[in-house]
Design a protein around this nucleic acid. Structure first.
Lengths: 195, 195
DNA sequence: GCCTTCATGTAGACAATTCTGTCTACCTGT
DNA sequence: ACAGGTAGACAGAATTGTCTACATGAAGGC
């Protein structure tokens, strides 16, 4: 199973079913575009059950972001390992790692960046949650760099390049197009390592 | 006047008043979070007048994006000039240019990236509009680079770095924090030019 | 073993608000 | 005559959230 495809969770407990359904809908269509009623219908649960587990939509949104964070980070560190990333071994494995993500047909950018865009002006929590997510991402990237005084600075810069590639890949519809953002990322990371 | 502060447009014709009001609200709170009624009330216009100029909210959204594009691009090329950017003169003027933007108190990221995050799964137009906006941005950046065979590739990479800085600056609340995304951008562009 | 309690679930009506969009009726300046 | 404007009622849909009434199975005290 991948980091953002759920197939069938009809035999899970209600709370998990709700959360996984909300995850798929929130990520695919956006949080505001997804009504509670749709989550309820799609997860095969009743209103009472839903509101027992998540007293308000905002609670569901927060749960969604927490879940997404765990799931994405797990995929991220695993994918880095699978593509030959090692402590201090350099940034270049990140390119195939992100290619794996971008080329997934249901790719629609970073759930956290999207959430901030949708709700940043309205539900201030999400900015903080997204900040923490990105901090975790930077920590993981720093692990790929040698331990010297420029480590932090380079990890931040690499994370910035990655976020740029993430949003650009979101604009490139066909899989073939994704190569453009991946090439840009590759150019940036290679230049960074020559620093 | 700056690229994203409108102060008072009470003496403009109705259509412009609507568009400028929508611009400020859409950018600040998000497109979905802003109801038509709010735009109507805030621009001091009646419903009939509004719907005479914009038959549907989607029409207003498209008009907003077109207007934002013109306005942002005008600011961008002007700011580059003001910070010493010249044809073939290199990428580094982009750092103070973006600093000018990021440090504006009402900064809330790129309107196009935000629009895609909000509506990309629902109103497919916006992905295309945003793509064209970013293409224009790349063209302008390419003008700062020497005319050789790596120009396009470098301009894309620089634009990717800039988009990354844009979304990261959106997460850094205090003005002081914006220095982090700006430093990352500076590191990336400097590394790129050494290529 | 029995009874109670409680968490978890189903089914669906209903309230309150908000959102987009339409309609009638009238006014004003060119 | 007509473009552009005002004022505000109204329709229809969607949204979030509450409420009543009932079923079931597991845990714990007695």
């Amino acid at each position: 199973m991948s980091y953002d495809t759920n197939t069938d969770f009809s035999n899970l407990p209600a709370k998990d079913r709700i959360l996984l359904t909300a995850h798929d809908l929130f990520y695919r269509d956006g949080i505001r575009a997804t009504g509670i009623d749709k989550v309820i219908a799609e997860s095969g649960v009743t209103k009472v059950t839903f509101y027992r587990h998540f007293p308000s939509k905002n609670d569901l949104i927060r749960a969604f972001l927490e879940y997404r964070h765990r799931r994405w980070m797990d995929w991220f560190v695993d994918a880095i390992k699978r593509h030959g990333g090692k402590p201090g071994g350099g940034l270049m494995p990140l390119v195939p790692v992100l290619e794996e993500w971008f080329c997934n047909p249901i790719y629609r950018g970073c759930a956290f960046i999207n959430a901030v865009a949708e709700l940043g002006g309205v539900l201030p929590d999400v900015v903080e949650i997204c900040s923490m997510h990105k901090q975790d991402m930077v920590r993981t990237i720093a692990g790929l760099l040698p331990e010297n005084e420029s480590r932090q600075r380079l990890a931040y810069a690499a994370a910035t390049a990655i976020d740029g590639a993430i949003v650009r890949a979101q604009l490139e519809s066909k899989t073939a197009d994704k190569r453009e953002s991946l090439q840009s990322l590759s150019v940036l990371l290679a230049a960074l390592e020559r620093t």
